[in-house]
Amino acid sequence: MSAGGSGGGAAEAIPQNKLIAFGAAGGLIAIYLSYFMVQFAGPAFSFIGALGAICAIVWGAAAVRRVANYGLGTGVPSIGMLALGMGVVATIFGLAIGGIAGPVVAFVTAMVIGLVIGALANRIIGMGIPIMEQSMTEIAGAGTLAIVGLSTAMTGTFMFDVILTEVIATGYIALIFIVAGIAILHPFNANLGPDEKQDRTLSTAFEKGAIAMVMAGIVSQFQPVHPLLPQSLSDWPYGMFLSASTASMLSGTHMMWLEQVSCQRKRRNRNEHGTCCP
């Protein structure tokens, strides 16, 4: 038995093609839905981007499971790091030149790089894994969608000017890199062994994706445009969210404080004393 697998194909209850559809279509639809919902309904809907990242992570973990079952000769983590290495290069390129088509450009670029690496791994290095080309393509695409999805969840957009200043320059991209990488590589790495089952690995992937989503949510709290802060009172459909109401309470307190300060300043200018009651 080689390191990381049993040297054969993996038994799967859910066929890989369904998981490809789930990851690729689900990821892209969620990213675009998140973008347009933030534009038209309010910044709280940026969390849909992280749901897209979860779809991509589950797909990526399933692809890692399939290819690593053949035995990579080295640890499973290497392939997750490769996915995110390809993914981060393709993501930045795609978002920088793509504009509104950014996620699709990034996705296609990553799959081209992945296909080339997979083909070279079989042709030149001679790994002899029959599904190497397909799996590398899938893993690169999944890594890219995970990065774009988490970035969208953090900022509410995938437009590169915002991503550049709020995700890349702040260093959150390093967090995304390692969190999404571990979410893709860890499910199979943790479960591999004689009783490894597809459902167990994929449910671990869901769990890892949810942890990544929580982290993206925490980061989104610190964005300059507060994602949960209503822009005006007409933006209240998501006021049911506890965090949104907390945020609006804070902003209300802040406005009352501002009023108090300006009133006191006016009274001081008029040389009056006493408390200010607007």
Binding site: S78, M81, G85, M86, G87, V88, V89, I125, A174, F177
Partner: peptide, 10 residues
Amino acid sequence: VGIFFVNAVI
């Protein structure tokens, strides 16, 4: 970092 990881895995 991305380019480095790709070239470390190959």
